[in-house]
Design a binder for these strands. Structure first.
Lengths: 282, 282
DNA sequence: GATTAGAATGTAATTTAATTACATTTTGAG
DNA sequence: CTCAAAATGTAATTAAATTACATTCTAATC
């Protein structure tokens, strides 16, 4: 999302460039039909400033900028200011929230690397036992993951309690896979458990912030959507949706991977999940 | 849709223009980064032909054409069949899954009625105690809801166990609000608990299928996204995202409602949730 | 089958838009 | 207060797109 980047980099920009950015943010729709000169005039800056701003965003030039912006606007039609403010009525809140969540998913689309996903699925497939660790807000997600994974044939269990996590991590072996769910990947307690997990020889899979201390300890890391934090559209919920979607993807791939012989595997998944939904009432 | 028009008017066009149109249709994505000259060369026609084609479509010129095309492509993300099938590679899976989830949110945007939301928030605000009931897959969601709600000042507790739910429902009074999370709203066990809840005089709020037996027992019902089931893009995960988003919306509104005196309430929410995320490690 | 009007297309010129190069101004450190 | 570095604007240049015009093709008529 170009507009998000513009907003989050407002600080970084110089006076004229910021003025320009503000004009763009104020009415993005108008930009896609404008020329360099028009836009420059509207922001009371010179033409080259427009080019420069594009360059500083890593875009080759203004025409390209327009095209990218057009695409973004098409995806998020109601690009209202994504930050919820006090005076917003309920309808506005609904729209902003949904926009933010959709944007989060769009972010995920780009952030996910299919080879990483493949490797994670391969590891999940090999494991004879799957342990899932999530604390605080991630505990609910871990529980959700357990629900999905253990239906796919491998014993899976979620642990919220740090002490239990330690014990489970210590008891794990190379047949185990331990899935860490941690938004920031910086919690001390979680890091210690991860170290224990490594020593035990288990495969360590992280859904966390790439580059974080926790990620360093993982065999494979998939994004927790932490990059969304820098974004104006950041809403705590958004990252949860990102993590849930990642887990969903892993389960879907694993299911496909495990039953390649049956042509319409997905029907099976669907049916099984459908049954789930009805029987135990989701 | 420019591409559709291009396709349907192929007949009408002259030889060179048709050749050009075919090249565009063959790889529209490539067009939005190309220049007139590039595109002309690829179709073995002259530069002006490109301009002419745009004009004959009623578009002012090639740059405008590119912008419109970019928007179209962004809106129809590669027209993939949304149902995941056996042969799909990982990338396709990712795209389909994200598309489905985005569509689910779009559905929610239309399904949510702001007056219903307002009434639910009002009820949440009045309650001195909030109980949250979810079974099976909804248990994780209930836990998540507890996490969010109890930070807003009212004691909130999630129960997965049906027996505990019965006891809590029986013990509730008119100061209590009981939130039922049930995708279908048809589970017998849940219905019985709901009846007990009504008798106790508690306010009964349901996130479930409108019109379902459970919904009949609720004072207010918000959608669980059940209508998505009928849709081709239906993916189990999608409804979970719908329910989570509904809960998120309720919490956001409640937070705004409770602290109207402070101008930038959201900053507070943000900060509080930010703190949450860091402190207890999400 | 030749001739010619009209459409289609390409070539070259022109215009327009965008970017680069350079000069001037502003900003902030010492 | 001075100076260096950054920021910004002006003017020149380049690149892109379009228009004007010439040529070629098409097909209808004699």
């Amino acid at each position: 999302m170009i507009l998000n980047r513009l907003h989050s980099e407002l600080e970084r920009l110089s006076k004229s460039e910021r003025r320009l950015a503000e004009v763009i943010l104020a009415d993005p729709q108008a930009v896609i039909t404008a020329s360099t000169a028009e836009l420059a005039r509207r922001a009371s800056v010179s033409d080259p400033t427009v080019s420069r701003l594009c360059k500083s965003l890593g875009i080759s030039g203004f025409p390209d900028f327009k095209v990218q912006l057009a695409q973004d606007l098409a995806r998020n039609p109601s690009q209202v200011n994504p930050v919820i403010s006090d005076g917003d009525d309920t309808r506005t809140c609904i729209d902003k929230l949904i926009n933010a969540n959709q944007a989060a998913l769009e972010h995920l689309r780009n952030a996910l690397q299919s080879d990483q996903v493949d490797m994670a699925v391969e590891a999940l497939n090999r494991a004879t036992r799957i342990e899932i660790f999530g604390m605080g807000a991630s505990a609910a997600i871990a529980q959700d993951a357990q629900h999905k994974l253990f239906r796919l044939g491998t014993p899976a269990c979620a642990y919220e309690d740090n002490l239990k996590q330690r014990m489970v991590a210590a008891a794990a072996d190379s047949d185990s896979l331990i899935l860490f769910i941690s938004f920031t990947g910086e919690t001390r307690a979680t890091l210690e458990v991860a170290r224990i997990a490594r020593e035990s020889g288990a495969f360590v899979l992280g859904i966390t912030a790439p580059g974080s201390p926790l990620a360093q300890l993982c065999d494979i890391t998939l994004t927790s959507g932490n990059a969304l934090e820098d974004t104006t559209v950041y809403i705590p919920m958004a990252t949860r949706i990102v993590i849930l979607s990642v887990i969903d993807l892993l389960c879907t791939r694993l299911a496909l991977r495990r039953q390649p012989q049956i042509n319409d595997t997905l029907q099976k998944i669907k049916r099984s999940l459908h049954a789930t939904r009805v029987r135990d009432s989701s």
